[in-house]
Design a protein around this nucleic acid. Structure first.
Length: 613
DNA sequence: ATAGGGTTAG
């Protein structure tokens, strides 16, 4: 007991001391000065004594009178009381800051509305901002900095900025804090210390304000502050978040030439970005650079690579490579954890290698790692995809019996499994069950079932489900509309299909290219070649390439309507965008043309040969 | 001392 107290106490007091160091540096060094009898004459009519008197009276009034602003000047006439003298102002600010920071803020506001330029000593300015920082009154503090010039002096502003940006919770809560800070810094072109710049950059990064990040970063560079490893790391992370891994990579190259090595987290994010983009050549390059510069990739680094290698469902070779890295990790003594195991198990499940996945599961358990929701879901998904719904169900029940709660994701997984294997009735049943079991639907739940209903030809049920979705707070996505548009086009319900396209556009959703194909084919199906052609023009204008099949259909439709010229026009449009025309379309059109006009047929043939060469 | 990692449809 005693040792516990002893071991705890010192660390706590060190922390306290450190806090005071940051917060009260200015006030500590000066606290004695105004009242120090050794430096100031004690005569009655000494001006300093006068200011002290006024200051304490002003404080009294401000503390006691609710609406002191309206009467304070009549109580303290500026010419005789010295209320606007910098010594007096500083004294009031310091006293109020100590007891009631917001009152000192109000006093400062009043000052700035009354007197054009306020001057207070840096110590008072410092304790003012420290007091507001300590009570996390960031908005008033920023407001004060904006309106009172002496608050943006380096010695006052720098610690303030550092504390503001370290309070990540407030920054998350109030989006505008960083923007306000940015505006202030841009208008003052203040210098800041490297730690302060880094804390600003970190705050911008974690709140995903990369626009701000770059503004701050330029200010930092313009102010002549040299970035360090943290700065470089944050820059790399910001660029990765912006989808600019290549730029981030060049930053990494540049700084490592100067022997500045960003932290593993940042480099891992860069590796993650290239992994997700499938650029594994670049990934191994960065790994080499990392190792050569003396920093070791860790479990997280490899985890990103393994995950990306497992991502492509059809790429079994990549899963093999992931598995190789995974096994290599174990050999090298990395402590693979539940996430690493789950990622690998999921990769194996997704490529249909259930036996290996289950072996890994056993190995994991043997190593004392408990499977969690994610692990269970990977296996359930694996069984669902391979059509073994009953096994999936068994694992699902096991998951529940182990105390893991089912979720929207686990239900969606089962739902998709049922849908995939034609068990529509069970799927509908599960959908209805979900809310009863306290599991809410989401956009994926709806999309899965809508797609399934469309696939099974239950168009009206699909539309009904879509309508009921609109009554919820769940917003439809592109994948909600794609199967609906497809089925409507297949049924020749072009008015309804076009209606959905319009709704999508109104919701800012871009129909997939294949939906455009469906529309054209649909118009052909109902013999409306004109609308089909119009839609084709729209597609081509939007730089979308129709499928060869769609073209076949349109040419076929136009030919059957005897509109060979139009068919020819379609062909020309294809040539214009140097689209390679399928041979079946060429055959069809040329044979049609031959029947009408063999000269034109020859011309077309020439052009095809020209384009294809 | 701590940061960063894995799931469902298409």
């Amino acid at each position: 007991m005693k040792t516990m107290i002893l071991s705890k106490l010192p660390s706590k007091s060190t922390r306290l001391r450190r806090c005071r160091f940051h917060f009260n540096l200015a006030s500590d060094s000066s606290s004695a000065r105004p009242f120090s009898s050794s430096t100031i004459s004690t005569e009655k009519n000494d001006p300093t004594t006068q200011f002290q008197k006024t200051a304490s009276n002003v404080c009294e009034v401000i503390r006691r009178k609710p609406r002191w602003e309206s009467s304070i000047l009549s109580l303290f006439p500026p010419s005789t009381s010295g209320i606007f003298h910098s010594i007096c102002i500083s004294l009031v600010i310091r006293r109020l800051s100590d007891s009631n920071p917001l009152l000192s803020f109000r006093y400062l506001l009043w000052l700035s509305s009354t007197s054009s330029s306020i001057s207070l000593d840096p110590e008072a300015a410092g304790s003012f901002l420290n007091a507001l920082s300590a009570s996390r009154a960031w908005k008033p503090a920023l407001h004060a900095i904006r309106s009172v010039k002496c608050l943006s002096e380096f010695s006052v502003l720098d610690p303030f900025v550092f504390h503001l940006c370290s309070d990540t919770r407030s920054i998350y809560c109030d989006n505008n804090l960083l923007y306000d800070l940015c505006d202030i810094l841009e208008s003052h072109s203040t210098e800041l210390s490297l730690p302060s710049w880094n804390s600003i950059l970190y705050a911008s990064l974690i709140t995903e304000k990369t626009d701000l990040f770059h503004r701050f970063y330029s200010m930092m560079i313009e102010s002549g502050t040299d970035p360090d490893a943290s700065t470089a790391g944050y820059l790399i992370r910001a660029l990765c978040r912006d989808g600019e891994p290549t730029v981030a990579y060049h930053v990494l190259r540049d700084v490592s030439r100067k022997r500045i090595i960003p932290d593993v987290v940042s480099i891992t994010q860069l590796i993650s970005a290239f992994s997700k983009g499938g650029n594994f050549g670049r990934v191994s390059e960065i790994l080499h650079l990392m190792i050569a510069s003396g920093s070791q990739p860790d479990l997280f680094t490899y985890q990103e690579i393994i995950n990306a290698l497992c991502d492509g469902a059809g790429r079994t070779a990549m899963v093999d490579e992931a598995f190789r890295i995974f096994n290599d990790l174990k050999l090298k003594g990395y402590a693979c954890d539940v996430v690493t195991y789950t990622t690998m198990i999921d990769g194996l499940c997704k490529s249909g290698r259930m036996e290996e996945a289950l072996l890994l599961w056993s190995e994991m358990v043997a190593n004392g790692i408990r499977p969690n929701n994610y692990t269970y879901n990977a296996i359930i998904n694996g069984y669902c995809k391979s059509g073994n719904i009953d096994h999936a169900r068994k694992i699902y029940d096991e998951m529940l019996s182990k105390g893991f709660k089912e979720s929207t994701v686990s239900c969606n997984t089962m739902l998709a499994g049922l849908c995939l294997h034609g068990r529509l009735a069970d799927a509908i049943n599960l959908f209805a069950e979900m809310p009863k079991r306290g599991i809410h639907h989401d956009v994926i739940t709806y999309n899965t079932l809508i797609q399934c209903l469309c696939k099974e030809g239950k168009t009206s049920d699909a539309i009904e489900l879509y309508s009921s979705m609109l009554a919820t707070s769940i917003k439809p996505s592109i994948s909600t509309y794609t199967p609906l548009i497809m089925i409507l086009c297949e049924e020749g319900r072009m008015t309804d299909a076009m209606e959905l396209i319009k709704i999508m556009e109104a919701q800012g959703l871009e129909p997939l290219v294949c939906s455009n194909d469906f529309i054209i084919s649909g118009f052909c199906r109902v013999g409306d070649a004109e609308k089909g052609m119009a839609w084709l023009s729209r597609m081509l204008q939007g730089n979308l390439k129709p499928r060869a099949e769609t073209m076949d259909r349109l040419v076929e439709c136009l030919c059957s309507l005897g509109q060979v010229d139009c068919a020819l026009q379609v062909m020309k449009k294809m040539f214009d965008i140097s689209y390679s025309v399928g041979s079946s379309v060429c055959h069809l059109l040329i044979s049609k043309l031959c029947a009408v006009d063999s000269y034109q047929a020859c011309q077309l043939l020439d052009e095809i040969v020209l384009v294809e060469s």
